[in-house]
Simulated assay, not measured.
Amino acid sequence: MSTKGDILKKIEILITTHFETPKKAFDFFDDNGDQKLSKSEIKNLLQEAEISGFIRGIISSKLIEGYDKDGDQLISWSEFRVAIDEISQ
């Protein structure tokens, strides 16, 4: 199983190599345009980052649990930016 560091690195590589900015990545994966990422939208991001299908559901839940500060079970742009800032460190 991938470690947290491995997973975060894959997400960072996806965002930095395929998108001009993290905001463009966020907008790309925001399928319904509501300016929030749902669990299924996060799973799509993880799939593109080549995270194993077996653990995508677990990781998407953990990302929501760790970064969803307003408790709506979605990741807003500001919450996503916090996650990206952490990944970049």
Score class of each variant (00 low, 15 high):
13 I>C: 07
89 Q>E: 14
24 K>P: 00
48 E>Q: 02
79 E>A: 02
16 T>M: 01
26 F>S: 00
80 F>I: 03
65 E>T: 13
77 W>E: 03
47 Q>R: 10
71 G>Q: 11
8 L>C: 03
84 I>M: 09
50 E>R: 14
70 D>N: 15
37 L>I: 13
23 K>T: 11
19 F>H: 04
43 K>T: 09
33 G>S: 02
69 K>M: 11
26 F>K: 02
44 N>W: 03
9 K>E: 13
84 I>K: 01
87 I>V: 12
84 I>P: 01
65 E>H: 09
55 I>K: 12
67 Y>V: 11
41 E>T: 04
43 K>D: 05
32 N>F: 05
80 F>P: 07
3 T>D: 08
4 K>W: 15
70 D>W: 09
41 E>D: 08
51 I>W: 06
25 A>Y: 06
61 S>I: 04
29 F>D: 00
60 S>D: 02
22 P>I: 07
59 I>S: 03
79 E>S: 04
77 W>M: 05
52 S>R: 12
44 N>Y: 06
33 G>W: 10
67 Y>F: 15
34 D>Y: 08
86 E>M: 13
74 L>P: 05
70 D>C: 06
81 R>T: 08
54 F>D: 04
55 I>F: 12
30 D>C: 02
21 T>D: 02
3 T>Y: 11
69 K>A: 10
24 K>V: 07
2 S>A: 14
82 V>Q: 11
79 E>D: 05
61 S>V: 08
23 K>Y: 14
2 S>V: 13
